[in-house]
């Protein structure tokens, strides 16, 4: 196995919050000093429900937020945690890119698709106009958009097409790592399948590594090699997708898997009617509002 392209080391993020009964010290720890690595050209899923810390993790890696402690290493080089110069930020842009859940709010509504990609190329590469036009065509082809869509504004595109634009824009910088933060969650099933296939093709063709932030285990199985399962800011289980999804050892992973609707699935209540859950013995607290670290 080659060296990891991305390493997250003891990453910790604490947010100041209002002092309440639930939170007497006025601090909320979103990420409890966790570590993982992403192999070069690999595909790692970070799985968890709301409040698990998976999105915080993504934001720290791209540099949208600063970690309280710990380090993010790309190709073995530690990313600085202090305020970066624009040159540094541009350099980081060549290494890590991110695609968000909602393509509509992450695209400029007044910028045509072609211009949107062209702008990224201008920023990062020393290319003349002809080279850029060729590269824009290549990127559009890679995500399955045609000439007509290249001249369109985001509002004229469907949700799936917009997400393809967001993916093409991220790839334009030729990053080593592409973070996909719930990037297919809002798409209709028939469109989601198309985008997942496009993502698989792109990884085969370019060798870019994916960090796939998602709550959807079926999607993980389809597109990832490795997985870390997060809960309340902690990694509770990790391994290859095949081993974790087929032989989950942690009760939370087992619970997540059991909750996925599938043919023949029967939903079950995990809490007893009317009675407060037992303070011990019950493997999991029943309410998302009481997400506590597991025993």
């Amino acid at each position: 196995m080659s060296n990891p392209v991305l390493e997250v080391r003891d990453l910790r993020k604490v947010y100041p919050v209002a002092v309440t009964d639930d939170c007497p010290d006025g601090e909320f720890t979103a990420l409890h000093g966790e570590s993982f690595t992403l192999a070069s050209g690999g595909s790692l899923a970070v799985v968890g429900e709301s409040g698990s810390g998976k999105t915080t993790c993504a934001r720290l890696i791209v540099g949208l937020e600063r970690a309280t402690s710990g380090a993010v290493l790309i190709d073995g080089v530690e990313q600085i945690r202090t305020r970066a110069s624009s040159a540094r930020r541009r350099q980081r842009g060549r290494q890590v890119q991110i695609v968000f859940q909602d393509p509509y709010s992450s695209l400029d509504p007044r910028q045509r698709v072609r211009d949107c990609l062209n702008e990224v190329l201008k920023l990062h590469f020393d290319m003349d106009a002809r080279e850029r036009a060729r590269r824009v065509g290549e990127l559009l082809d890679q995500v399955g958009l045609d000439e007509r869509q290249a001249g369109a504004l985001p509002r004229a595109l469907s949700g799936g097409q917009r997400q393809r634009v967001a993916i093409a824009r991220a790839l334009a910088a030729e990053p080593k790592v592409l973070i996909l933060d719930e990037a297919v969650a809002a798409l209709d099933v028939s469109i989601q399948a198309q985008v997942l296939n496009v993502l698989a093709d792109i990884r085969d063709a370019t060798g870019v590594a994916y960090l796939f932030i998602t709550h959807d285990l079926a999607v993980v199985q389809q597109i990832c090699d490795d997985v870390v399962v997060m809960r309340s800011g902690r990694i509770v289980e990790r391994g290859t997708v095949a081993s974790v999804l087929e032989r989950p050892t942690h009760p939370y992973t087992q619970r997540l898997l059991a909750s996925v609707p599938r043919p023949g699935w029967t939903p079950r209540r995990r809490t007893t009617t009317g009675e407060p859950p037992a303070s011990n013995g019950h493997p999991l607290p029943p309410e998302s509002e009481t997400k506590e670290p597991l025993p």
Binding site: D188, V189, S190, A193, N197, A218, Q222, V260
Partner: peptide, 23 residues
């Protein structure tokens, strides 16, 4: 088409079957 396009636990396809175009 809908049933085939949905990734399913316990079954990894080399490629997902898709429905062409958009709804």
């Amino acid at each position: 088409g809908l049933l085939a396009a949905r990734p399913e636990l316990g079954r990894r396809e080399r490629r997902l079957q898709t429905i062409e175009g958009r709804p």
